[in-house]
Write a protein that binds this DNA or RNA. Structure first.
Length: 316
DNA sequence: AAACAAACCAACCGCGTCAGG
DNA sequence: ACCTGACGCGGTTGGTTTGTT
């Protein structure tokens, strides 16, 4: 007995979203807030299934999304977090609030994998003549990562259990992809952000000579391109992101949820956390790369602090 | 200029989890 | 305790764009 589809296949539209659909969805969410996706198609008249609506919103329409080029910092952050967390894209995305898990996943699969493969190839060339060296590195890496994970988990549990700062955890991490829209501090921002989207969409509708055929990604492009419309990406970010911080706080620690995950990672260390390309040795090269470049940028130290829970100093 | 290949990314699918009845 | 529905996540697909021959 298979699981029934989330919606009737009959009459459900698939494929790229049109600007009109985006507008409908955005205006609905503006009014009712994200959530209760099941009712969205019914209430909006969209011929989409609830999943599709949610995905469209979380991956594309929601305010606070940064699209396009990943910065060097983001790239390193992803690599490091992937090494720590494995392919848990949602968890990784929670450290990069401006990026969606889908975006990060795509970027990993299309760019970073190759990059790391290259790095590994380089490493293989360097270590071709001796196995014992890499074995030593491997053991050291493993122990260090294990200690790091244990420390992070412990730290997170301590923070979770100490009720000194009850707001901390929810502030640190967008809860389950909900991005704290409903939090007291961000309600107004959410509303105005959605208004911005609506405004941009309306602007596009006005300017576009061929609205019916244009894909929704073109919307963004046209609205965001300097020649096409009123708003540049930066402008858009200014409009939308008055709440956001550029990077996760260096003092950020993990949530209890993450702590549990880390504990699990410890017990399933070899297979669960899926270290880069299945071996420890590339990580050392990778870390070297990350750390070396980090020296040049203070930000990278934040990254290391953030992802290693500030234990790097102890460990080295 | 055309054909083909590679890269990219939005969207879909199916499974796992969890809350409510 | 069990069942069901809703949601979230990760893997995968397929259409589009870009680059190469």
């Amino acid at each position: 007995m298979g699981r029934p589809p989330c919606c009737d296949k009959v009459g459900v539209k698939k494929g790229p979203w049109t600007p009109e659909e985006d507008i409908i969805l955005v205006s609905y969410i503006q009014e009712h807030g994200p959530g209760n996706w099941r009712s969205v198609p019914t209430n909006t008249g969209l011929l989409r299934c609830s999943k599709s609506c949610r995905l469209r919103w979380t991956n594309y329409l929601r305010p606070g999304i940064k699209r396009g080029n990943f910065s060097d910092h983001e790239e390193k952050m992803i690599i490091h977090l992937q090494a720590l967390l494995g392919n848990r894209w949602a968890a990784i995305a929670s450290y990069l609030p401006q990026r969606t898990d889908n975006d990060i996943k795509n970027y990993w699969n299309t760019h970073l994998k190759k990059k790391l493969k290259k790095l590994q190839t380089g490493l293989d060339d360097n270590t071709r003549d001796g196995f014992s060296g890499s074995q030593q590195i491997s053991k050291g890496q493993w122990e260090r990562r294990l200690q790091t994970d244990i420390h992070m988990a412990r730290q997170a549990l301590c923070e979770a259990l100490s009720l000194e700062n009850p707001n901390n955890l929810s502030d640190l991490k967008p809860s389950n992809g909900c991005y704290s829209y409903m939090s007291t501090t961000q309600t107004s921002t959410y509303a105005s952000s959605t208004e911005n989207i609506s405004r941009l969409l309306k602007g596009w509708m006005k300017n576009s000579p061929k609205s019916s055929k244009t894909t929704s990604s073109e919307i963004t492009d046209q609205n965001f391109s300097n020649n096409g419309a009123q708003t540049s990406p930066d402008d858009f970010e200014i409009l939308l992101f008055d709440f956001e911080s550029p990077t996760p706080d260096a003092s950020q620690s993990v949530s209890p949820d993450e702590a549990v995950n880390f504990s699990q990672d410890i017990s399933h260390f070899q297979d669960e956390s899926k270290p880069i390309l299945g071996s420890e040795a590339p990580l050392s090269l990778l870390e070297k790369w990350l750390f070396d470049e980090g020296v040049a940028q203070g930000q990278e130290e934040d990254l290391i602090e953030a992802s290693l829970g500030g234990t790097a100093a102890e460990l080295f």
